[in-house]
Design a binder for these strands. Structure first.
Length: 230
DNA sequence: GCCCAGGTGGGTA
DNA sequence: TACCCACATGGG
């Protein structure tokens, strides 16, 4: 591991410890969560997953065969529910038709091949595909997301408008291709992001990365010049 | 009442 | 390539 990427990891791990990701009991449930969590808080995803479980739909074949009206109603808490119901069934049907209903079978393939297979499915973009590869299949692929973009932008590592592939490449260059490390690092970024690095009002006080961070430094200095009380 | 959350796909210039 | 928008719930 090199430079800033190593320093950030060490600080986050020292503060938060192991995150035990992904929060799911099977690879298929993990993939369902990856689709449902798109632009939605995890709390709402948990409700949707519990609803699917209560109807026995956390398996590829039953989910693939269920009426879309039922699936949509069950995943309603996860927002965009018609769209996500369709995406879940597209994924489940792909597993049934191409892999005997086994996500493990699909994930046994070579990384680049499985990735392009996932990306070809409706509703699975780079982040969802990489999450499924890493957290569902143990492939050495670093997952980046909105928190990663924001947090490392505020630290001064890259521009706010950097794309997914460019961010991912920076991690792949800086880190050894270790799935265990990638797993923990991404989870730690999300943990820190939720707690300290939110979009509108970051809470830099107490953030383990504050001494590396421009936003935190600005908040600190401006409190002594312009924006301060009295 | 307002903002935002572990994105993706489709459209336009 | 670079933006813009639809999708459409629940919590702080």
């Amino acid at each position: 591991m090199k430079g800033l990427f190593e320093a950030v990891y060490n600080r986050l791990f020292a503060r938060f410890g192991p995150q035990h990701w992904w929060p799911a009991s099977t690879p298929f449930e993990m993939a369902v969560g990856a689709i449902l969590t798109q632009s939605v808080s995890w709390r709402n995803v948990e409700r949707a997953i519990a609803n699917l479980a209560s109807e026995g739909l956390l398996e590829p074949a039953p989910l693939a065969g269920a009426p879309i009206e039922l699936v949509a109603e069950l995943v309603r808490p996860a927002r965009y529910y018609w769209q996500k119901a369709r995406r879940l069934q597209t994924f489940a049907r792909h597993l049934v038709q191409r892999h005997g209903g086994s996500i493990e079978a699909m994930l046994r393939g070579e990384t680049a091949k499985v990735r392009s297979e996932l990306l070809a499915l409706e509703g699975i973009g780079p982040e969802s595909a990489d999450s499924i590869l890493l957290y569902g299949g143990g492939h050495p692929v670093f997952v980046v997301d909105a928190y990663t973009r924001r947090l490392f932008h505020r630290i001064g590592v890259w521009d706010e408008k950097i794309g997914y592939a460019a961010m991912q490449e920076r991690f792949h260059r800086a880190l050894p291709a270790d799935p265990g490390l990638f797993n923990e690092y991404h989870a730690l970024i999300v943990r820190a992001g939720k707690e300290y690095c939110t979009a509108r009002r970051p809470r830099c006080g107490g953030c383990p990365l504050a001494s590396l961070c421009r936003t935190a430094a600005e908040a600190e200095s401006s409190s002594g010049e312009d924006g301060s009380p009295r």
